Amino acid sequence: MSGIALPRTHAPARRWLPFGDRLFRILLAGAAVMVLALLGGAALAIFWGALPAFRHFGLAFLTGLAWDPVHRDFGALVPIYGTLVTSTIAMLTAVPVSFGIALFLTEVAPVWLRAPIGGAIELLAGIPSIIYGMWGLFVFAPFMADHVEPALTAAFGPLPLLGVLFDGPPLGIGMLTGGLILGVMVVPFISSVMRDVFRLVPQALRESALGLGATRWELVWRVVLPYTKSAVMGGIFLGLGRALGETMAVTFVLGNAHDFSASLLMPSTSIAAAIANEFTEADSDIYRSSLIALGFVLFAITFVVLALAKWLLARLTAEESAR
């Protein structure tokens, strides 16, 4: 055996990519890194501007109710509360409507009607938010004050628990109106995503379910939704992110009052509205830093919401792959 020469094993030669492919890969990697750098830079810049407020007020800034520019006393609880309440109202109204629109366009509407309605929805998505705000202030708010809010107060006011939510004068502007305006704004985004993913359901699955005797509702509930639930959740959280950061529309109809109230009919404010209204009037460093701190809180809320959405989507995808 010692006289037998064993063949030498050579490492495979490294395959060099052409210059164009290498350049393309470098450009793509640079674009990805730039996105992370911009996100981190924006977060760092906002945090740096908010640092004086966090040092001065500490964690009490997040739980404080006061907003007194004269005495330099600021708290973020009312804007945070207004942001979360209006966004919740927006999603409670927008998700069922968007679901109905998407189902109508994919399952019920005739072919000749789908294109006009789909174009109208996309047109709504392109309307500037300030137009929604003006419409809400001059048209929707008076309608709410004259017809909707008195009826809600009369119907739910005497009830033990719900009465607190609908207590107060029918002003027309307030958290309920702001949430409904936000709901109208996010409907085009959510319904467009749902419509597109509902179209991706294979026709063979639809025909198989109908051939087995499924009704239209059973087809949607047992075939369409399970097949597209990950994308539907992504569209819902996309609309939620849009609602959390909306500025001009809610500024017109929210009332811009730093008063904490459990009633949905009373004026309030949101983080974005407070920054837009008061940033040019900030006459002190701590005032300006407090407004920037509000922006950092909004950034953190949005980041947590989108991270939660990503986690839910990954979990749904893993569950589907395990089946």
Rank of each mutant, 00 (worst) to 15 (best):
G100L: 14
K310Q: 14
G133H: 01
P226C: 07
V232H: 03
V108F: 06
L294I: 11
I181K: 04
L113V: 08
S98R: 04
P110T: 13
L171Q: 10
T83Q: 05
A32P: 08
V164E: 13
L254K: 05
V186H: 05
A66D: 15
A154T: 14
D259S: 13
V223T: 11
D146Y: 05
R114G: 06
T83N: 08
R14P: 00
A37W: 05
A90M: 11
M248Q: 06
V85T: 10
A102N: 04
H71Q: 12
G136D: 01
F299Y: 12
M134W: 13
M175E: 03
F279I: 13
T106W: 03
P188M: 02
W221L: 07
V253N: 01
I236F: 07
G30P: 07
V33M: 13
T317D: 14
L306P: 05
G75N: 03
F104M: 10
G75L: 01
T228L: 03
F57A: 03
G295T: 09
M248T: 10
L23S: 10
S284K: 09
L176Y: 02
P79K: 02
T247H: 02
F299P: 15
V139T: 15
K229L: 10
P150W: 06
P110H: 13
G30K: 02
A314K: 12
A262K: 14
L291K: 02
A273Q: 09
Y81D: 09
H56M: 05
P7Y: 06
T251M: 13
I131R: 03
R288I: 12
I4R: 11
P170M: 00
V220L: 06
M91I: 08
A43S: 13
P160W: 11
I130W: 01
E207A: 15
A322Y: 04
T106L: 07
P79T: 02
T251D: 04
V187C: 11
T93D: 01
L200T: 15
I89L: 09
L200P: 11
L306V: 12
I89S: 04
A13T: 13
N277H: 11
R15V: 14
V35D: 04
G75V: 00
A204S: 15
M34R: 12
